[in-house]
Simulated scan of single mutants.
Amino acid sequence: MGKVTLIATAAMGIEAIVADEVRSLGYEDCVVENGKVIFEADELAICRANLWLRTADRVKLKVGEFKATTFDELFERTKRLDWARYIPVNAEFPVIGKSVKSTLFSVSDCQSIVKKAVVESLKNTYKGTTWFEENGPFYRIEIAMLNDVATLTIDTSGVALHKRGYRTEQGEAPLKETLAAALVRLSRWTADRPFIDPVCGSGTIAIEAALIGQNIAPGFNRDFASENWDWIGQNNWDKARVEVEDLAKYDQPLQIMGSDIDHRMVNIANDNAFEAGLGDLITFKQMQVKDITTRDEYGVIIGNPPYGERLGEEKEVEEIYKDMGKVFEKLPTWSVYMLTSHPDFEKLYGKQATKKRKLFNGFIRTDYYQYWGPKPPRV
């Protein structure tokens, strides 16, 4: 097959973290753009990227990119691409689409034209085939129009990468696993330091920290659409999964605690941790923020507290922020990281953040408030 171009899609604000992850897999030559990281690699990279990328949403295979301002142009240029290089004669290949700031603004028309063009292109290769049954492996094609440039991709992931497979249940406002992993990554926490999430909800941040701490690939427990693609080959998938096992540090001790005021959420967090195979490594407790105490030093606290956006919740939330300020002040060697959309967080917490980073939790614009503690002494 040779080289392929891959696109790891990402939420706004965490593209640089995804790029770091891509480079850490050995794919140094990557380009960072809004919402995506583009890199050249081989078939094995499709397996490795899907298994290892903690903060990316999907891994897409780029088939082609060109300017198109008329439907004729879109049809002809799409038809010219070598679809048979990837798509077998029996493949199921639905087309999805989106269009932003483009002359071809009708998404349904773009989808329909791309579908027809792909069919015509495949007919040219698979001579004698007049009808495609579409009863084989799944290849979801996407036509993305942006400023009159059409980008055509095939999704290699299937279900989005944040679906790790361990969430048995979740709360009302769950944090995506990919964003939770990004929060841990941004804190530069390492497995030898204690870790607390004081508002743990369904346990996602603590679980992602444990996966990072033991270097367990986030995709170890799930399947991907491209596992059924013959041209990638079972050998590459087997090789990538063996690497996942070889690199995991199951013996790495961890000191991770999550607490929440709601005993129901504590039970859910426990169930989720056991589902992820990490139940013995994380301690979940029912506790108010103001009751948190520890004798440990140089730890990291990461939380995604309620934002006070629901009616009648604001006063309660503001009290939590004030409690955090008072409690964490007594932990001078600890670093604190909080994600919230509340505009007065620093005022309520009682201290200005060392650094703020703009991130999106779904469609909510939030700030990640970072209070850096002193570096732990070298052992």
Rank of each mutant, 00 (worst) to 15 (best):
M1K: 05
G2N: 04
T9E: 00
T9P: 02
A11T: 00
A16I: 06
V18M: 07
V18K: 12
E21D: 13
V22F: 03
S24R: 11
G26I: 01
C30I: 10
V31T: 12
I38N: 05
A41S: 07
L44G: 00
A49V: 04
N50M: 06
N50Y: 01
L51S: 03
R54L: 04
V59F: 01
V63H: 09
A68V: 09
T69V: 06
T69A: 00
R77G: 13
R85Q: 14
P88F: 13
A91C: 14
K101N: 02
K101V: 00
D109V: 11
D109E: 08
C110V: 04
Q111G: 04
K116W: 13
E120A: 10
S121Q: 12
S121A: 15
S121V: 12
N124Y: 07
T129D: 08
W131Y: 15
F132G: 14
F132S: 15
E134C: 13
E134A: 15
N135C: 13
I141L: 06
E142R: 03
E142A: 02
N147D: 08
L152W: 11
I154C: 03
K163I: 02
R167N: 05
T168M: 11
P174L: 04
L175K: 11
A180D: 07
A182Y: 05
L183F: 07
L186E: 11
S187G: 09
R188W: 13
R188C: 06
W189M: 08
A191G: 11
A191F: 13
D192Q: 13
P194T: 14
I196R: 10
D197F: 12
D197L: 08
I205H: 07
A209I: 14
A210M: 12
N221E: 12
F224C: 02
S226M: 01
W231P: 08
D238L: 04
K239H: 02
V242A: 06
V244E: 06
K249S: 14
K249H: 12
K249Q: 10
Q255D: 13
S259Q: 12
D260M: 04
D262F: 07
M265V: 03
I268F: 05
A269V: 05
A269C: 10
N270Y: 10
D271V: 07
N272H: 06
A273R: 00
L278T: 05
K285Q: 14
I292D: 09
T294R: 08
R295P: 07
R295K: 15
E297V: 14
Y298G: 09
Y307D: 10
R310P: 05
L311H: 09
E313W: 04
E313V: 03
E314N: 15
V327Y: 13
F328S: 07
E329D: 14
E329P: 03
E329I: 12
K330Y: 10
Y337P: 10
M338R: 08
S341D: 03
S341F: 02
P343C: 03
E346R: 01
E346C: 01
L348K: 10
Y349F: 14
K351I: 00
Q352N: 07
A353H: 08
T354H: 12
L359C: 00
N361E: 07
F363C: 00
I364K: 06
R365E: 04
W372Y: 14
P376E: 04
V379E: 15
